[in-house]
Design a protein around this nucleic acid. Structure first.
Lengths: 242, 242
DNA sequence: GTCTATACCACGATAGAC
DNA sequence: GTCTATCGTGGTATAGAC
């Protein structure tokens, strides 16, 4: 349980203590969530004193943020870098939605596949954090994602010039939500999916099925007053008068 | 652990204490989430003794479940009833996906619009609960949703006979995820949406935009080996060799 | 049965000794 | 830098009053 995983570059050595805490915290947060993981459990697993967390990171909340940043920041940077590369590629004209989605998904898959980058369980932790009620988590993730999202919104905007900016914002919101939620929920909806036992924990299969679903939604007709809305109206009126 | 839980309508009046606790708990859970709400805050707001919660509900977790069941159970029953009504209607032949989605959305909107049923904030609580890491919440919601989901899955299966059952299961999973996430996240992604101040908390607008998005995803081409997957493959290979 | 007062142990945080 | 001691607050359990 000790000096595992990355321990990023250290000339003479990043404080071994901090890395041991980060590794232990990541594993326990992944398993039990933020609130249900005690500092006492983390420090015991890392073989350090209870007070070490507060000394090195300031608080349990800041430790949680450090755990996320360590993986998330590089992933989002890779997303943007991939998108840059795609856009500079002169071969294809304007970037297709498909390729933009690829730039969004591939770094997540790389992370999921490489245990040294966090492994697939880290994505579950991330997805859960994304929907956590705790205000500090929501604020933190909003800041972490802000530039990356803005960058992708611009790219999608060029790929879908007919789509109003507001509508695009919503659809991007739906995409990020479905992505986070899907990655977080592996165990939640076994009842729905009745999936084969082997397929269960495979994030790649998940994303491969999610991508076409989201792509179709992204290109869906505008909701100005299409079938659904009208039917919805009618049904709501009927419901009101019942 | 004694005369616990619902104690539904009784001639002379439901126990005032239990209802006061449920109302206070619902309000506080909505505002701060499960973990961040203390029993002491709940019992103070309800003007009852601290031990009353454990007496009437057994534990904080069971209180949370009671808070959810009170609104959720009727809503899911209405969803199924609406679907039944649509299917028995002889006018239209096989039920369209649009109308099935309507049966899924309308009871949620009714709940959101009627403060007596919980109001829109309850949907936020529900969406957050749906993505909560706590195992007891995930288990509880799975059970609550199980029959309803099975019912809708059968209906969608008839509307989309070409879609393999497994693929349908996934897409239903995505739909429930996007729905929960969307309803939960009103404040989360203000950064993405840059929405007009007035539009912000309107759940109806949200669902009207979400419905076409999900509908298109539901009808998307199969992901066997379409464009996205191939691009994804190529890009992953490229990433590996970098 | 219903409710109250109170005791318990685990938690996160911090001050101060080493 | 690291540790021990301690504080306030959390969920829970129970004994006894009405």
């Amino acid at each position: 349980m000790a000096g595992s995983v990355v321990s990023l570059q250290d000339g003479r050595g990043t404080t071994a203590t901090q890395d041991r805490i980060l590794d232990a915290a990541e594993a326990l947060f992944m398993e039990h969530g933020f609130e249900a993981t005690s500092l006492r459990a983390i420090t015991a697993a890392a073989s350090v004193n209870l007070a070490a967390v507060n000394y090195h990171f300031g608080s349990k909340e800041e430790l949680f943020e450090a755990v996320l940043t360590r993986r998330l920041d590089p992933m989002n940077q890779r997303r943007v870098a991939l998108l840059d590369r795609f856009e500079r590629d002169p071969a294809n004209g304007p970037l297709s939605c498909e390729r933009i989605l690829v730039a969004l998904f591939v770094p997540a898959l790389e992370l999921a596949r490489d245990p040294a980058l966090g492994g697939k369980n880290f994505l579950r932790l991330l997805g859960r954090a994304y929907a956590d009620p705790a205000p500090f988590i929501r604020r933190f993730l909003s800041e972490q994602y802000a530039q990356m999202i803005a960058r992708f919104k611009a790219a999608f905007g060029r790929a879908l010039p007919h789509l109003p900016a507001r509508e695009l914002s919503w659809r991007l919101h739906f995409i990020m939500g479905a992505l986070s939620y899907t990655l977080a929920g592996t165990d939640a909806l076994k009842l729905i999916a009745e999936l084969s036992p082997k397929e269960s924990p495979n994030d790649e299969v998940l994303l491969r099925r999610l991508a076409p679903f989201l792509l179709a939604g992204l290109k869906a007709p505008l909701p100005d007053l299409p079938d659904v809305s009208r039917e919805l109206d009618g049904e709501l009126d009927a419901a009101r008068s019942r």
